[in-house]
């Protein structure tokens, strides 16, 4: 007979996950599965929901660990790794004991994994700081679409909040169907279906600027140094879709 599979649920927020992990550790439970509430259980699953106080959870970890540990944990939380909750669990469990020394304990499997994932998320967020492309809509709102692997929209929004402080902008993550809206003061991340954006028409002026950028891009590469391999290394094809200057290149490749 197959054994039942206990699954601990949290509310899909970072603080909820932290609270749950605190409760599990205090009860000395080693979970085999932690999932958020979007999870569809199968026949052999036993779903367990503990009573979670999100605020307590955050405070607990702030008092028991360090800024660096919480930051790393948060980045893992944003990743698309299907095992991320368990990785966070073991990373935090060990952090209680080792504090910041944990960053040097790559000998522990969970630490190596945790640092690798958090690095991937940081890295992807950094790439999109450069690779995101806005266009100016008729109503002067700047609009961009991105398709990142990890849930980096919030990290990116912080970046553009500082950089494009006095502009209205919207960034849509087409993989997750969520959008970030900035009103020159704060940004709000909401589900795509809450806000219908169907006026994506741009201005003539915008088209002129886009043409200028494309011709700048073509001009700035030195023919004698052409190096597709190198370009692909730094800017793999998966990013090209939303990058204006690569549209011709994509067409060329599809022919």
């Amino acid at each position: 007979m197959k054994q039942t599979n206990s699954i601990y649920l949290y509310q899909n927020t970072f603080s909820s996950l932290l609270s749950l992990i605190q409760l599990l550790i205090e009860a000395k439970i080693k979970p085999i599965n932690i999932k958020n509430t979007n999870y569809t259980p199968s026949l052999f699953d036993t779903i367990i929901t503990l009573e979670i106080n999100e605020k307590d959870g955050i405070n607990f970890w702030i008092s028991k660990t360090t800024k660096e540990i919480i930051k790393t944990t948060y980045y893992i939380f944003l990743s698309n790794n299907p095992e991320k909750e368990l990785i966070i669990y073991y990373f935090l469990l060990n952090s209680l004991k080792y504090q910041n020394k944990i960053f040097y304990l790559r000998r522990l499997n969970c630490v190596t994994k945790a640092l690798k994932i958090s690095h991937q998320v940081t890295n992807e967020a950094h790439k999109f700081k450069g690779f995101t492309r806005f266009k100016e809509l008729k109503n002067h709102i700047l609009y961009a679409e991105i398709a990142p692997e990890n849930d980096i929209l919030i990290l990116l929004s912080h970046h553009f909040k500082n950089r494009l402080k006095n502009e209205y902008w919207i960034i849509k993550d087409t993989n997750r169907q969520i959008i970030s809206i900035y009103d020159k003061n704060k940004f709000y991340i909401v589900d795509n279906n809450i806000l219908k954006i169907d006026h994506l028409a741009t201005t003539m002026e915008n088209e002129k600027i886009e043409k200028l950028w494309k011709s700048f891009y073509k001009t700035i590469g030195i023919k004698e140094r052409q190096n597709d391999r190198c370009r692909m290394n730094f800017m793999p094809k998966k990013y090209w879709k939303n990058m204006l200057e690569m549209s011709e290149e994509i067409e060329k490749n599809n022919k």
Binding site: F131, N162, R163, I220, R225, N227, R231, F234
Partner: peptide, 29 residues
Amino acid sequence: KSKNGIGNTAYAGICHSFASDGRCISLLK
């Protein structure tokens, strides 16, 4: 830091694209 205007700088620098020769495009050169 951006004050009332547009833009700031990132200490680590940011590459915005890569040209056909594989070099980073960061600034309007």
